[in-house]
Deep mutational scan, measured.
Amino acid sequence: SPEEIKAKALDLLNKKLHRANKFGQDQADIDSLQRQINRVEKFGVDLNSKLAEELGLV
């Protein structure tokens, strides 16, 4: 269901964000992850996106 997909995506992105902060990645990478999280919260996951591929939806 779209809600489950959204939850999985947010979980994955939050893990990536945590790792980025923990290991001191570029601020641009961290900002990009934050924008992705905001986009998923607002609009859900686009099944044509790279994120959908990472989640194994495509």
Rank of each mutant, 00 (worst) to 15 (best):
S1Y: 11
P2W: 14
P2N: 12
E3T: 08
I5P: 02
I5M: 11
K6P: 00
K8E: 06
A9N: 00
A9Q: 02
L10K: 03
L10Q: 02
L10F: 00
L12Y: 15
L12V: 09
L13G: 00
L13D: 00
L13A: 00
L13Q: 00
L13Y: 00
N14W: 13
N14K: 14
K16H: 05
K16W: 06
H18P: 01
H18G: 10
R19L: 15
R19A: 15
N21K: 15
N21D: 11
K22A: 14
F23R: 11
F23L: 15
F23N: 14
G24C: 10
G24Q: 08
G24T: 06
Q25E: 11
Q25S: 14
D26M: 07
Q27C: 07
A28E: 10
D29F: 15
D29Y: 15
I30L: 06
I30Y: 04
Q34G: 04
R35P: 01
R35N: 12
R35I: 09
Q36E: 13
I37D: 01
N38C: 13
R39T: 13
R39W: 15
R39F: 15
V40F: 01
K42R: 12
K42A: 12
F43M: 09
F43Q: 07
F43L: 08
F43H: 12
G44K: 00
G44Q: 01
G44L: 01
G44F: 00
V45H: 01
V45Q: 01
D46R: 04
D46M: 05
D46K: 04
D46E: 10
D46L: 05
L47K: 04
L47T: 06
N48W: 08
N48I: 05
S49K: 01
S49N: 04
K50P: 15
L51G: 01
A52P: 02
A52V: 05
A52L: 08
A52Y: 09
A52G: 04
A52I: 05
A52M: 08
E53H: 11
E53I: 13
E54I: 09
E54G: 03
L55H: 01
L55M: 09
L55Q: 01
L55G: 01
L57A: 04
V58M: 10
V58N: 11
